Every structure is written in C-alpha cells, then in structure tokens.
Simulated scan of single mutants.
Amino acid sequence: MSKPETAPQTDPAAEAQAAVHVDEVAVRFRTRKRDVTALREVSLDVPMGEFVSIVGPSGCGKSTLLKLVAGLLKPTTGTVRLRGDKVTGPRHDIGYVFQRAALLEWRSARRNILLQAEMRKMPSAQARRRADELIEMTGLRGFEDALPHELSGGMQQRVALCRALLHEPRVLLMDEPFGALDALTREQLNVEMNRIWRETGTTVLLVTHSIAEAAYLSNRVVVMSDRPGTIREIIDVDLPAERQYSPTMAKPEFSRVTSRIRDLLGAGAAAD
C-alpha cells in the first residue's frame, strides 16, 4: 500500500514518462537572522494523468513544491522537469487554482473564465466553445452571466477551476482550493473534481490539509515531514477511478489510507 521515500533514486524511464519529475530538490531561503531550509531532498515522479495529493504539517513546504513545478521559484539544488522539459522559469502550459478564487468583481463568471483566453491570446471562437464546455461540465449553466458577489463560494471556485482549465493544460496545480468552503460544499466539489479529472485526463497535483479529501481524490498521497520538508512516505490509494462519496468513505481501503496518513502526521492530524 505504501512506498517509503527513504532513499529515492532517479529512474530514467519514469522520468521520461512523467508529467512532473522532481529530483533531489532542496530550497533554502536567507532571512536577516538565519537561513531557512524549506525543502530537503525531495524526489517525486507523477505519471501522465495521475491525481496526486500532498499533505503535511503547516509550513512544511507543500505550496513551495507547487511553485517549483510552476516555475515561480527556483530550487537551490536539484532539478524539476515538466513533461520532460527542465523548469527554468514561469510555465504557461499549466493551470493553477489557489485557495481564493481571485475573480474580478466587475466581470461576469463567463468573462472571468475568458480572462485566461485574453491573457494567452487564444482564438476567440475556440475560447468561447471551451468556456461553454467547462461551464456545462462544472454545473455553472445558468450562472455564467452572474457577477462574483452573486455567486456562492463554491460557485466562485468552479469559475476559478474553469479559468485554469480553459487552455486545456496537461498539468493542473491546486493549492488548498476548497479549504475555505463549508463541509457540504467541499464534499460536493470533491465529487465534481473527481468527475472532471476522469473526463479531462489532466494530471493533477493537489495540496490539501484534509486527509479525507486527499484519500478520496487521489491515486497516491504524498505525506511530508515537518520543516525542512521531505517526503516521509507515498501511499497508494487502491480504489476505482470513479468514486461515489459516501460509499467510498465506507470502504476498508479508504480507512486504511486515512489511518496511515494520520499515523505519519501524528494524533494532531486526526481532526480531519
């Protein structure tokens, strides 16, 4: 069920096939008073089409790892590759969803989605067709002309997800996208996210503090240590790709995964 990451080694075949390849990465920052190591000896391969969640204590470098993949940060040591290409700067072939939807208040849901097309200079007809597909896929039909203040938090996050997927990225990075939502809305969006992932075939790397969310959505869960963050263990989630929410929660394999994550993170993580 699990794969300890005590001595990661580079596999050339896995690297060639990986959507995301992280090899012996460390990140160190210098402050006025001291040097801070955010990540230490992190190695990870995410195959094309896989859904991987990253969990760990606050401040362990989960978001830092996403920023490395996106090219928003450079590793102090080690290498990051995206679909075989070394990441040397900001990548424009990914999608990124943050905890806050960050919608423009004066633009409708549809026009917020199409902002991506304007920034990327996508052909307008193609962008409108893609936006219509995503609006249908995410259950936003009937709300496409609403302004952000007229939408619930869950609806706003659906708009943000559509915006991130508009250009059909092969890799989607998600940094606590459902963390600020109420429990019921979060469950509903987990179900929607599972369906969207299956329909699009997008590789997803999700940072979350929710153990249940990580186990429900993922093929594998990466469990990180306290700072300096490193990978303690990678846990396989042996569940079918299509997952109903309550029946999945009741499965023994789901319980085994969540229990193992809690064991690795400590008793303080058992609240979620």
Rank of each mutant, 00 (worst) to 15 (best):
P4M: 01
P4R: 03
P4G: 01
E5H: 07
E5L: 04
T6W: 06
A7Y: 01
A7V: 12
P8Q: 04
P8F: 01
P8D: 00
Q9P: 02
Q9K: 09
Q9L: 09
Q9C: 05
Q9E: 14
Q9A: 11
Q9V: 14
T10F: 02
D11A: 02
D11F: 03
D11W: 02
D11V: 00
D11E: 11
D11S: 09
D11N: 14
D11C: 12
P12M: 05
P12I: 02
A13W: 04
A13Q: 14
A13M: 13
A13H: 14
A14I: 03
A14L: 14
A14P: 11
A14Q: 15
E15C: 10
Q17V: 04
Q17W: 05
Q17F: 04
Q17S: 15
Q17Y: 05
Q17K: 14
A18E: 13
A18N: 14
A18I: 11
A19K: 13
A19S: 15
A19Y: 05
V20L: 10
V20E: 05
V20S: 07
V20R: 06
H21W: 12
H21G: 15
V22W: 12
V22E: 09
D23K: 14
D23L: 10
D23E: 15
E24I: 10
V25D: 10
V25C: 13
V25W: 09
V25Y: 15
V25N: 09
V27W: 02
V27E: 01
R28A: 11
F29Q: 02
F29P: 04
F29S: 00
F29R: 02
R30E: 06
R30Y: 00
R30Q: 11
R30F: 03
T31K: 02
T31R: 04
T31N: 01
T31I: 04
T31P: 01
R32S: 09
R32P: 01
R32Q: 10
K33V: 09
K33L: 12
K33A: 13
K33E: 05
R34V: 06
R34K: 14
D35F: 05
D35E: 14
V36R: 00
V36T: 05
V36Y: 01
T37D: 07
T37Y: 02
A38I: 08
L39Q: 01
L39A: 04
R40T: 10
R40W: 10
